[in-house]
């Protein structure tokens, strides 16, 4: 099969681009990493790729609010190119800071309801936290989700709490299939902090758009991609397949 090309966009303060690229390569894709300014000057790289990934980090220091400034860049300079990208059936993945960027550009949840109805606010704890969580997949159209679970991977953020404008927005999110993953405990049941680590509405951890081609999630799948990533790996068999890889493999398979 032909190589799938992944374009990874970074900006000032992006800091997970290397390990994210490594995981894409691990599952068989080819990657190219570009500074957002370079992409702005030459958007043809989008046309040459099948998957766009915005990795984690603190783009522009999360100044103003997380992901906001890079979202401004995308809206001002690349909105048409991104719309064409999705129309062409291609996939977009935003991890952590990348998820925040996708929400603040309006690409997620991308509902018919319009922009400005969903955001990622400060965690209820008021603090940045690095903590492993379980994720229950919501079976649906999202091309990154295969339905098996729960998946185990870490969150590491201060602004990951999904907040919605009103009850209608939440109903639409759920009913129209925008929820891709929810925070659960190891047995698959919902719970308060720390099961839901940031106080997210309806325990939502990840969102997808109307097409299922765009996924944004707060947890870091690329941080559970090596046998020694798992916090309990010294108690586990060493030949396991790490959970985080699944998401990348599923997306790749959906393009083939």
């Amino acid at each position: 099969m032909a190589d799938v090309r992944v374009l990874i966009v970074r900006g000032p303060g992006t800091n997970c681009e290397l390990e994210t690229a490594h995981v894409w390569e691990q599952v068989g894709a080819r990657t190219r990493t570009m500074h957002i300014n370079a992409l702005r000057d030459d958007p043809t790289a989008l046309a040459e790729s099948q998957i766009l990934t915005i990795p984690g980090g603190f783009c522009y220091g999360d100044d103003v609010s997380a992901g906001k400034i890079m979202a401004m860049d995308l809206r001002l300079f690349l909105s048409d190119a991104l719309r064409d990208f999705v129309s062409a059936g291609k996939l977009i993945l935003g991890i952590c800071n990348g998820f925040q960027v996708l929400v603040k550009t309006g690409l997620l949840p991308g509902m018919a309801l319009g922009d400005g109805r969903v955001t990622l606010a400060f965690n209820t704890s008021g603090r940045y936290e690095d903590r492993w969580v379980h994720l229950a997949p919501v079976q649906g159209r999202c091309r990154f989700v295969d339905g098996d679970g729960p998946l185990y991977m870490p969150i590491a953020h201060a602004e990951g709490r999904i907040v919605v404008k009103d009850a209608t927005t939440l109903t639409t999110l759920c009913d129209a299939g925008h929820v891709a993953f929810r925070y659960v405990d190891e047995h698959g049941a919902s719970g308060d902090y720390p099961v839901n680590p940031n106080g997210s509405t309806d325990h939502i951890a990840a969102l997808t758009d109307d097409t299922g081609q765009v996924l944004g999630l707060m947890p870091h799948p690329e941080r559970n991609a090596h046998p020694t990533h798992h916090p309990l790996w010294t108690q586990l068999p060493k030949d396991r397949t790490p959970d985080g890889l699944r998401l990348f493999k599923t997306a790749l398979a959906s393009l083939r």
Binding site: N15, C16, E19, G56, D130, A156, E222, R223, H229
Partner: peptide
């Protein structure tokens, strides 16, 4: 927990 101790995926 306030420190990111896993970024760069080498943990």
């Amino acid at each position: 927990r306030q420190y990111d101790h896993e970024v760069q995926a080498g943990s």
